[in-house]
Structure formats: structure tokens, C-alpha cells
């Protein structure tokens, strides 16, 4: 018994464990880190653009069962916009038809004719002004994932990255990365309550336009009922089931945002 312990210690302190033949350069790591950050920011850029363009659609559709994946919710929203063009308010459809009247019959069913500018642009702007978001009662969902959703349903969305890892010492709750948030505990699932935590990607903003990088003061201004809890700011939402935005901060600036089910029963959430 003692022998093996000693042998293992000796082996692990052996010089030959040093890796000389294969080097990883600091520069290569920095380049890779930048690439990953840029990729995230690129998605963030698209996010911002599409948010500007389709604020109305984005906000109202998040509430409805939007088909987009968590993998860059807005990226997918942008592609799904033409397909949803049948349902949006007639106002915009008519305005679009007017613009195209000259050469085309109106039965060309909005947007799919290959015109690149046919997206959500004209359609969404009137809507964003007419229906302001009411986040205090917004449902706890991000993309296809929703708080309270069962693990099986969440896995079926394809937004979770397997395998799961245990989220607490008792091995009861499970943690997953998502396609948009690589942290291994981006989503936490309770065997009883379903999804109890969904981490929002750091490029995303809440409907009140706060996210990672926002100042704590802005968060509190946006969410009047927000309360400070340690270094985090909690903004409760009165949806069914009730949940809370958790803004983790470094004291002045938000460093992470996640949505937490109030009835969560995982110690690590």
C-alpha cells in the first residue's frame, strides 16, 4: 500500500514529466483567446444590429414560443424572421407592398422572393414603438430554454452541450454548458424543479438593455425593484413560475447575468 503511494509520488515528481518536446507558445494562446472573444463579439454585433432592427419582434417573440436556439438567440431570430413574416401586423405588410407595387403583384408572399432587404426591417420598426416590453412579468426563458423546463425537454432543444457535470456535492443537480455559454455550469437542472438556472451569454442584453458591462447603477435604474445581495444585484420577475435576474458584479460593473428560478433547490445556484 505504502509502496504504491510512494511510487506514485516519485513518478509525479519525475523530471521526465516535464514537457519539452511540445511547446505551447504564449502568443498562440493569446491569439486563440482573441479569436474566441472576437467570435463571441461578432455574435454580439449581430445581436445588437438585429436588436435595433427587430426590437419589437425580439421582445414580443421571446415571450411567445420562439423557435430559435440558445446558440446566439438573435442570430437565429434573424434567419427566422422571414418565415414569421406571414403573421406580423398588417400595417407593415401593406407598407411593404406599396414599396414594391410597381413591378410585382402583392401575392409574392412577403420577403421570400430573394430580396435581401426584405427582412424584418420595415416590419419591425412600427411594432417596437407600439408595444413596449413589460419585463417585470416576462417569462423566464432564453431562446429555446425556459426555467422550470424538464431536463429531457431541455436536452430535446439541442441547446445544451453534453455531457453534464454534477452541480453539487450530492450529485443531485446537473450542470450543462450551452451552445452560447461555454461555462460548464451555464445551465443547472434540478431533478425536481427542472431548469433552475440559465446563464445569459455575455453579449446579450435584457429587454431593459442591461447586461455584462452595464454599470450597477444602470441595472438598478432599469429594475426599480432590484435588491443588492452581496456583490450581486437581484431583480425579481413576477412571471409564472416566478424567477429572478441575477446580475453578478465586481461592485461597479456587471460581470455575469443569469436567470434563476425562485423555487430552486440546488445548493450551487
Amino acid at each position: 500500500m505504502g509502496d504504491l503511494d510512494d511510487d506514485l509520488r516519485r513518478l509525479f515528481s519525475d523530471d521526465r514529466l516535464d514537457v519539452h518536446s511540445v511547446a505551447v507558445s504564449t502568443e498562440a494562446v493569446l491569439r486563440g483567446a482573441n479569436r474566441r472573444r472576437r467570435r463571441r463579439n461578432a455574435v454580439a454585433g449581430t445581436f445588437a444590429l438585429v436588436t435595433l432592427v427587430g426590437a419589437g419582434i425580439g421582445v414580443s417573440r421571446l415571450g411567445a414560443s420562439s423557435p430559435d436556439g440558445t446558440a446566439g438567440a438573435l442570430l437565429t431570430t434573424s434567419t427566422s424572421a422571414p418565415t414569421t413574416s406571414a403573421s406580423p401586423p398588417p400595417v407593415s405588410t401593406s407598407s411593404r407592398t406599396e414599396a414594391v407595387t410597381t413591378g410585382q403583384p402583392p401575392n409574392s408572399t412577403g420577403g421570400n422572393t430573394g430580396k435581401p432587404d426584405a427582412g424584418g426591417t420595415s416590419r419591425s420598426s412600427p411594432k417596437s414603438s407600439s408595444s413596449p416590453p413589460t419585463p417585470e412579468s416576462q417569462p423566464g426563458r432564453y431562446g429555446t430554454l425556459a426555467l422550470g423546463m424538464s431536463e429531457a425537454d431541455a436536452l430535446a432543444t439541442g441547446s445544451l452541450v453534453e455531457p453534464a457535470s454534477p452541480a453539487d456535492p450530492d450529485n443531485r443537480c446537473k450542470a450543462y454548458a450551452t451552445k452560447s455559454v461555454p461555462d460548464t455550469d451555464a445551465v443547472i437542472v434540478s431533478p425536481v424543479k427542472g431548469l433552475v438556472r440559465i446563464t445569459v451569454p455575455n453579449y446579450a442584453k435584457t429587454p431593459k438593455n442591461v447586461g455584462v458591462g452595464s454599470r450597477v447603477a444602470d441595472v438598478k435604474a432599469a429594475y426599480q425593484n432590484a435588491v443588492q445581495s452581496g456583490s450581486s444585484v437581484l431583480a425579481p420577475m413576477s412571471a409564472t413560475p416566478p424567477w429572478t435576474y441575477v446580475f453578478e458584479t465586481d461592485g461597479t460593473v456587471v460581470t455575469a447575468v443569469f436567470m434563476r428560478l425562485n423555487a430552486n433547490d440546488c445548493t450551487s445556484v
Binding site: 505551447v24 486563440g32 483567446a33
Partner: peptide
């Protein structure tokens, strides 16, 4: 080497968050 590189890249891309 592969493991160190990929983990450091991930950590580096979110360094501020890791430190916080």
C-alpha cells in the same frame, strides 16, 4: 499541449470574468 492550449484559450477569452 492540446489540453493546455484549449483550456487557456477559453479562460483567456473570459479572463476578466474568471478573475472576478
Amino acid at each position: 499541449a492540446d489540453l493546455v492550449q484549449s483550456v487557456l484559450e477559453k479562460v483567456g477569452s473570459r479572463w476578466a470574468a474568471v478573475q472576478s
